[in-house]
Write a protein that binds this DNA or RNA. Structure first.
Lengths: 205, 205, 205, 205
DNA sequence: TATGAATGAGTTTTCATTCAT
DNA sequence: GATGAATGAAAACTCATTCAT
């Protein structure tokens, strides 16, 4: 995503790209710094000129990719009116972005999880802007009256994020063979209306 | 859950229980076999009389706990009529069981993920019976006309599992302070009807 | 010295002896654990069953050799009457012991010093019993009236220890070619009467 | 001492001073060239314009400071008549100079020793002029009849140097809190007459 | 069955030194 | 003379697993 699109510090980008490549192939614990360095065309020590340590390198991948998603989302949401439209856009951008970079998705969905408690906390911090974005849209929907106020913020957010996460992980683990972005409309529908049929809902109404 | 309820081979159970304890405390990678053995009151080598290796020990924890959940669910679902009631029961039992054993939940939700791609595949295999159970209930709901046939099986299953998973993980990471089982009704509602408000749905209908 | 004379834990002694050998040959910083292990006929990991780390291994060498010297000195001093006789015995045992094991002397006099401040503090702690022994003899001499009470404890102790240390170091660095123990009588005389000639002293008296 | 007193090549002096400062604070092995360079206000590479390598930098500190001591001693000894007076002056200048620069003393007494055998040999070479100075005074004393000819040159020199060295090291390690130079008279007395009391000596005479 | 002493493979990180500018 | 980005060699320590008893 964002990584590598800027012109400055070519080596830093090269290392990040190489890291995604190598981690996607071999997993976090088997991704040796020396392999990443070789793939980036730099010496081992050069990695440490740009990243504090291996952990920092991994977190930088997440930070910059999720940062880019959040950045794109902020732009995109300016164009949308209404919480439902904004939620749709969130799902589209999230699945679209990850669906376009299977290697990055492999790293964030699978390998990034192979870390200890301390790193998980840091990952949580990095994800916060995305959570806040979701929360804001949920808030807006409740204000507008299009989202149920009976469903708590937290439950709504966890459903949305849990569904997206499970969807991307399943796509990655199955080999990234189908078009992930194409699932967006169905995902949005199920997030908004659940799995119940219309008839069922009408009856209850 | 299932672990320790049977009377045979007390050492095997002792080792499994010790493993859950030690992994919950220190994480998978820091959970040394020697520490687990000491906690179980056996020698290091004895662990290898009951489990092929450390990986097998970890998978056994998941296999037996998820196996017990599935077993309980099968019993429970016999008492329920209608797909919606069955889905409700699944959520109740799942959240109830994990909510009663925070250490086990910590292991399955957090530490179990810190493994490589090959183990992820095996975890998928272990989870299959649970997925099938979900699929059967979704099927039944579509037949009955209470679940929408427009929503695909896979998307429905991933939404349900993704939501449950994210809910349990959030509970574990926040310190298991509140009653997880108490969330079941809200979770069921959001799974069935989504986050949209009733008024919104009526309008659309 | 003490190392290897006891019958228990043959591997621990083997590792200590190998460490003295390898450190004497290559210096502390170049003495790789794997080389020490190979020289001792054990696996690398075995070293860590007996010693906490490389630093602990080095300190153990000093602790046990100086411990043995102090032990021998305590025994020997029981046989002596008078502070001068005791001082003579200290010098004899000290030079005699180190003079009999050039490799050990090389380690304690040269390589052991190549360590950081924290280890130096620990070395100081290990040397304390030896310093105390010196102090006790100096005290006794002053009581008896054979040692000058004008010379402070500390200065006396530093002269004695500084002279012994410099003597052993010079012997080691020159290749341990002569008989170190044979220097004892001259050393004792210079410690007691200094470098002044008798005539000079008489004149002043 | 000598460092920084000459007007030429300000950078060389700046680097030497910075090196003493940084080594005194962090120890030889932790004193990175980049830190020394930063403290001196020059680039890393600049250090190598003035010193062959890190080892050469360290040896230069010793060479120039001991060189200055020897130079001062040569001047001072011209003013003295008699071996005893000269020895007194040596002790005064040595303890006085080091006592005035605790950082430099820390480097020469503690950190400078943390080096390998090869550097030890070079350190020995640098110390030679000081040893020769001692030897000359001892010679003179024997000629004059004030120093005993029974005590060998080497033993006398090692006692003198060992005592001085141990005294300075103890001062440095205890935090340089007291006046080192003030110890000179007591040190001289103990070097000349040893630790024996006058009564004791008279009896023996 | 049970023990536990012994094994040995495997990798991040630092930092003195170089050299193109 | 001066810079500082880039280099790359080098080693301690952990811990899952084995196997003789």
């Amino acid at each position: 995503m964002a990584i590598g699109t800027r012109r400055d510090s070519g080596k830093r980008d090269a290392i990040l790209r190489a890291a995604i490549q190598v981690i996607a192939e071999t997993g976090y614990h088997h991704a040796q710094i020396s392999r990443i360095a070789r793939a980036a065309g730099v010496a081992d020590g050069t990695v440490y000129l740009y990243f504090k340590n291996k952990e920092d390198l991994l977190l930088s991948i997440l930070r910059e990719s999720i940062g880019e998603v959040v950045h794109q989302l902020r732009q995109a949401l300016l164009e949308e009116r209404g919480a439902t439209a904004k939620l749709r856009r969130i799902v589209e951008v999230y699945l679209g972005d990850l669906g376009r970079d299977a290697k990055l998705a492999m790293v964030t969905q699978v390998h990034l999880r192979q870390v200890d408690a301390e790193m998980r906390r840091q990952i949580g911090d990095i994800m916060k802007p995305f959570y806040h974005l979701l929360d804001d849209v949920i808030d807006e929907g409740i204000q507008e009256g299009v989202f149920s106020q009976e469903v708590g913020h937290r439950i709504a957010r966890r459903m949305i994020f849990g569904t997206l996460d499970e969807t991307v992980t399943a796509w990655v683990l199955s080999g990234s063979k189908y078009d992930l972005g194409a699932l967006a409309p169905d995902i949005v529908r199920v997030l908004c209306y659940g799995i119940s049929s219309r008839e069922q809902v009408e009856e209850e109404v």
